[in-house]
Nucleic acid binder design. Sequence first.
DNA 1: CGGCGGCTTGAAAGGCATCAACATAAGTGG
DNA 2: CCACTTATGTTGATGCCTTTCAAGCCGCCG
Lengths: 243, 243
Amino acid sequence: MIYKFHRLKDNELKRRILMQKLSKTPLPTCVQCSFGSFCLDGEAKISTVQYELKKKETLNISNEKFRNLYIVQKGALKSYEIDLNGNEIIHELFFKNEIYGYEAIYKGSYLFSCAALSDTVLCKVKYEDFLKLIQEHPRFLSYSFNLMSRQLNTASYLKYLNAQQKVAAFILDVFNRLLPDKKEGEKLLLPCSYQQIGYYLRLATETVSRILSQFKQDGHIAIHHKQVTLLNANALEAISKGF
Amino acid sequence: MIYKFHRLKDNELKRRILMQKLSKTPLPTCVQCSFGSFCLDGEAKISTVQYELKKKETLNISNEKFRNLYIVQKGALKSYEIDLNGNEIIHELFFKNEIYGYEAIYKGSYLFSCAALSDTVLCKVKYEDFLKLIQEHPRFLSYSFNLMSRQLNTASYLKYLNAQQKVAAFILDVFNRLLPDKKEGEKLLLPCSYQQIGYYLRLATETVSRILSQFKQDGHIAIHHKQVTLLNANALEAISKGF
DNA sequence: CGGCGGCTTGAAAGGCATCAACATAAGTGG
DNA sequence: CCACTTATGTTGATGCCTTTCAAGCCGCCG
């Protein structure tokens, strides 16, 4: 049995809460959620709250004390800050089944704000409950380490690649994370604008545009509005590795 | 009781093994080790092996299957690779009490090689034993998440800072990680050459030299050979944040 | 239909890398 | 312990990659 609580006037999020109280019929997002098999599983008495964030809505938890992890069940999140010069820095993107909050464990507080790149459903889990869940489900322990380990590798390429390599790596990364099964020939709607991609990759919008145009011209991708079709994953792979 | 095994002819490391068989008197490095309180604690039957790596010696585990975590008990490690153009990329540095191997969990194999920046003592722990240790010591669970969370934040500044900011952040980072208690006025021997710093920060050796010279000239640090004295941490902090 | 945000393309500026030459330190062997 | 060799650090000149600035285009939404 799962326990779902909500506060009608949630000061932290002030968002519509999807979950009905003490529901015994799991929501679709729970069934699909990679944590569902743990949450829905008999023993653990975990209180979770689901939130819906509309596109561009924010989770204002910057500087707040760390207490919860947020599982992305649908949509996409960015964690970001505005630096002293007023420029936006996107620190990380979080897609379906990825968890926001690990970075805050160490510091004890959330350092950055979060915003939804598209309509997004989040599941808030208390960190202490998360730990409890792990105690009760040994295989959840290694699953969690896997996720965290994955995040250690995510976007490490931003540290050492040049503009062209970054964009190639980004395209491949997005395809891998959003469509883990299929690859070549697959269509994908870019999760954010070129400007946002630039903030993430630390490139000017113009640079992102120029490079994507070139990839299109070279036949590595097809791109129309934000619909990207991966035509030649190997070529992008090669580019991202420096030929 | 702790169980310490070793294979006299270790094909993986071929290094001198410090640990005597089934020792009941813990080694000095174990007593100081941040994991000592768990390892040395009664119940857990953990097999660990200690290795000594001389400066510049490598842990050749690139492409090997992931099985072990390595706790740095003394010295410093770098994980690195040589890219297609023959340039070295340092992915991460690991100092005392930090753990090498988390990144490999997700991939199932070690992607990079490791080398000692100075004479280093490592403690090898089987991942499965590590998980077992966590099951038996609940407080070890949150401790491990803390370490991993810390690593998520480590060196994230390499993604978005310019040369001057990177060097300032690096100096502060090294002081924080090697001398967590004291700060200003403290001396520290840089753990590696300017070239290595450059490989890590993705800057040319010349750039590192120029910027450090400038910091010295501005009175933010004193530096002689590789002895760095932190004179004005606030100034460096400000520089790293872009004034 | 008009306005606005997002994308595109060109020209100029700037930051950092590269190349080169030299200085100094560290390591090696006699 | 010295002489030699090699590695590491310093400083200046030049060039390239990416940013910045500017202007125009396109698609979307009210």
